[in-house]
Design a binder for these strands. Structure first.
Lengths: 255, 255
DNA sequence: ACCTGAACACCGTTCAAGT
DNA sequence: ACCTGAACACCGTTCAAGT
């Protein structure tokens, strides 16, 4: 029996910050980055533009909140869920946990094409806002678990975070919509993009850009995720190679 | 024939793409990111807004050009200057050359506070536009010189570039102008910023953010450049540790 | 060809007025 | 307290009209 609907969902739920942020994410996902305007948002929520400002302050705060919720959903929970003694990522090796966190962000950026630009913007505009600490904490815990000397915790974690955000920002990209062929976000579109980029490298003056000419093919054929993980692996190798008590005969960094 | 028209600098030079880009950089440097508008630009150039569009297409292209010129000035020349057989950076070790390129960008971002955001935006919006290839070439040449196996050239270079851009984006930042005390860009301002960020970390719930609580002090006291270089060092260690040949003496990249 | 500058179609944000 | 929506002060971009 459906007649017992107390909250009349038919008309309109009460406006709330949560509902606004949720609608913003939907708008960004479905209509793209440029479609998030106060007007579009208030129309979708069947309210006036001014109503938005009763809950969110301004546009930048809204974007930050939208980014924050998506990022939070892409990372492991900060606390162990009630009942389980450990957080999920603490069961495997720290290396694997770092890879999992990194891939979580990477995949989220692939799913939400606007996310990469927002992560980058947040990095520069208000680095210590809401999302950077979240990422920093998730990575840092694993760095600590890697036997990195305490004095290197911040530098090591920063290196990983900077790489992850930089790589995520670049990889989740497709060309400026020209309305060509493939579906947005499809593998086809990505491969068209890489094709075009590879051609662009080959069109550069070979005297100025000899290296780009040499790796234009490699660039076209690379797998995004695989290469992203290769970068993580490189940094992890650097971290463990530099640790104090390693395998016999190993050297340690003399900072 | 036109008889020696000496450019009368008093009145107004002919409008050109170059002059517009130059004026844009000045505007960004002196008035900040939000001050670059077509109207402000055309006023500074004593021309009409429409004139701008005869030379630059649109705002995004202008920002890209501005970023491009600053980046080009911050990196070593692509070709050796006439007369010298080598590019300057090829005299030392590849590691040092990589550090020099990275620091060039890092310092440019410190000098031009708007640059970091633009680099990040360019990374995401049109990754293969004008500036990314430039950086890629400069780093990639040195990667090749490091005896990295050919098949890893692209992945290795990408890792370095992503880290450099991510770290540059974050480090060159100061808080959202609150008109507080210190001079913009000064060491004082940076230290005020780190102070505030450190406090923000300490204000987070310690049950959710135990790691951030542990390194809040380290974060406040870190030196930007030093830490940036530590990250480069970590990656370089990962690169050289992963190289194929073990025996000291001769190792050449195999096919 | 190059430039002018009013006009257009948007923005984010505010605020008196409503409930 | 919460919401409305017209109004304000901006944007980027266009384009008939000038030189």
């Amino acid at each position: 029996m459906v007649t017992q609907t107390r909250q009349s969902q038919r008309r309109r739920q009460v406006l709330s910050r949560e509902r606004i942020v949720e609608a913003a994410v939907e708008l960004l996902d479905t209509e793209g980055e440029g479609a998030l305007t106060v007007r579009a948002l208030s129309e979708r929520l069947s309210t006036g533009s001014g109503a938005i400002y009763h809950h969110v302050g301004n546009m930048g705060e809204l974007l930050q909140a939208a980014t924050g919720t998506v990022v939070a959903g892409a990372l492991p929970p900060l606390r162990a869920p009630a009942g389980s003694p450990q957080t999920p990522e603490s069961t495997g090796s720290p290396e694997d946990a770092i890879r999992a966190v990194a891939l979580g962000l990477f995949d989220a950026a692939a799913e939400h094409p606007w996310l990469a630009a927002q992560l980058a913007a947040q990095l520069t505009r208000s680095p210590w806002g809401a999302v950077t600490p979240r990422i920093f904490e998730s990575i840092g815990r694993q760095v600590r678990a890697l036997d990195v000397p305490r004095r290197d915790w911040f530098a090591t974690t920063s290196t990983l975070v900077h790489y992850i955000l930089g790589a995520t920002a670049q990889n989740a990209q497709t060309p400026d919509r020209t309305g060509d062929g493939a579906l947005p976000g499809s593998a086809d579109e990505r491969s068209e993009f890489l094709d075009a980029a590879s051609r662009a490298w080959r069109d550069l003056d070979p005297d100025d850009y000899p290296f780009l000419h040499e790796i234009a093919d490699q660039m076209r054929e690379h797998e995004d995720r695989e290469q992203f993980l290769a970068g993580i692996g490189l940094i992890l190798t650097g971290i463990t190679a530099g640790r104090p008590s390693g395998p016999p005969g190993d050297h340690h960094g003399a900072g």
